[in-house]
C-alpha cells in the first residue's frame, strides 16, 4: 500500500480530530464533500460538529478561527487555494500575527494553503505565498516537501501556540507517494539535509526539492555531488544548517517556485552574504519563477517556473562547468 502527500494531510487531520477535542476544521466545502482536493474526505462523517463548511468569506473565516483559537480551540482553516488567502490576508497578518505580541494571549491557529503550480492552473490557482506571510511578524510558515513532513508537520502545526501558515503543494498531492507513513522526528524550524555532497549547496523547499533531487542525480554521473537542504520551515529559517553546509561546499544556490522579489531565496542569500561571506568561493545564485503572473498554458508555465532544466543550468554556472 502506498500513501500520497494528500492522504498524509488527511490522516494528520483525522489523527488530530481523534486525539484532540479542541481541533476544528473550517473552510469552504470541507464538510461532507471532503474539500476541493479531498483533504478532509470522510472526516465530517465522523466528526460532524468539528468539520464545518464556511461561506465564501476568507476574511471572516480567519477572523472566526482567531476567535475560536483565543477561546481555547485549535482551528485548522482550509483555504480552497492559497491564492484566495489574500482575501483573508488582513486577518492573518494584522490580527492573528500581531495578537500575541499585543496582548500576551496566543492564537493557536493553523491555516492550510494549497499552494504552487499545477498544469493549467493559471494566474489565480498557482501561487506560492510563503514569503508574503513570512514577511509579517508573529507567524510560523511551513513548507513540507515529503509525505512524512506533510503528516508530521501538520500535527506539529496544530500543537504550536502561534498561527502557522501551512503551505502544502498541490502538485505533490497526488504525485508524491511513500510506501508507509513514517513520522518525521525533526522539529519545526530545523532544516533537513536531503542529500549530502561536497561541490555545492542547493537550498530549497516544497515541490522544488524533487526537481533539485533530479538535478543531483544527473550531475552525479559527472562526478559532481550536490548537497541539498530542504528547509521544511521557511520561518523560522534554519540559517545554521545552511551556513554549515556552505562551509563545506563553498557554493550556494537557492531554488524556489515563488516569485523572486523579496522572497525566501533572497532572504537566504542575504543571510549567507552577511554571516558567511568568507565561506563563499563564488557569488551565491538563485532560481525563482519569472516576475510575471503565472501563465495558464502548460508550455508557458513550464518555462515560467523553475524546473530541473533551469536549475541544472544555474548549478553549472555556479560551478562554472
Amino acid at each position: 500500500m502506498s500513501i500520497t502527500y494528500l492522504n498524509a494531510i488527511r490522516e494528520a487531520q483525522r489523527h488530530l480530530l481523534e486525539t484532540d477535542q479542541r481541533v476544528l476544521i473550517y473552510g469552504q466545502d470541507v464538510g461532507l464533500f471532503g474539500g476541493a482536493f479531498k483533504a478532509t474526505k470522510g472526516l465530517a462523517e465522523v466528526f460532524p460538529d468539528r468539520v464545518m463548511d464556511a461561506p465564501i468569506s476568507e476574511d471572516a473565516i480567519v477572523g472566526t478561527a482567531i476567535g475560536a483559537a483565543i477561546e481555547g480551540l485549535r482551528p485548522i482553516v482550509e483555504m480552497q487555494f492559497a491564492d484566495f488567502s489574500t482575501v483573508g490576508f488582513n486577518q492573518i497578518a494584522n490580527n492573528a500575527g500581531a495578537f500575541f505580541w499585543r496582548t500576551g494571549v496566543p492564537v493557536p491557529l493553523t491555516v492550510r494553503l494549497p499552494s504552487g503550480g499545477t498544469s493549467g492552473g493559471g494566474p489565480f490557482h498557482s501561487q506560492s505565498l510563503e514569503a508574503v506571510y513570512a514577511h509579517y511578524p508573529g507567524l510560523v510558515v511551513m513548507t513540507p516537501a515529503t509525505v512524512s513532513d506533510a503528516y508530521s508537520m501538520l500535527i506539529e502545526a496544530v500543537t504550536i501556540d502561534d498561527p502557522v501558515i501551512f503551505c502544502e503543494h498541490k502538485y505533490l498531492y497526488y504525485h508524491l507517494k511513500a510506501d508507509t507513513l513514517e513520522p518525521e522526528t525533526l522539529p519545526a524550524g530545523k532544516a533537513r539535509i536531503a542529500r549530502t555532497g561536497r561541490d555545492a549547496t542547493v537550498v530549497t523547499y516544497s515541490a522544488m526539492l524533487h526537481e533539485v533531487l533530479e538535478v543531483a542525480k544527473e550531475l552525479a554521473n559527472e562526478d559532481v555531488e550536490l548537497e541539498i537542504i530542504d528547509l521544511r520551515t521557511v520561518k523560522p529559517l534554519d540559517t545554521d544548517t545552511v551556513i554549515a553546509s556552505v562551509a563545506r561546499t563553498g557554493r550556494l544556490l537557492c531554488a524556489a517556485e515563488a516569485w523572486p522579489w523579496g522572497g525566501v531565496s533572497a532572504e537566504i542569500i542575504a543571510r549567507i552574504a552577511n554571516e558567511g561571506f568568507h565561506l563563499l568561493d563564488a557569488p551565491p545564485r538563485r532560481v525563482n519563477a519569472k516576475d510575471t503572473p503565472i501563465p495558464y498554458h502548460p508550455d508557458l508555465w513550464s518555462i515560467h517556473r523553475p524546473a530541473a532544466r533551469s536549475i541544472l543550468l544555474a548549478v553549472r554556472e555556479l560551478l562554472r562547468i
Binding site: 476574511d59 471572516a60 473565516i61 480567519v62 477572523g63 472566526t64 478561527a65 482567531i66 476567535g67 475560536a68 483559537a69 483565543i70 477561546e71 482551528p75 488582513n90 486577518q91 494584522n94 490580527n95
Partner: peptide
C-alpha cells in the same frame, strides 16, 4: 475586522 473574531 473584530466582528468575525467575536463570532469565533
Amino acid at each position: 475586522a473584530m466582528i468575525s473574531v467575536v463570532g469565533g
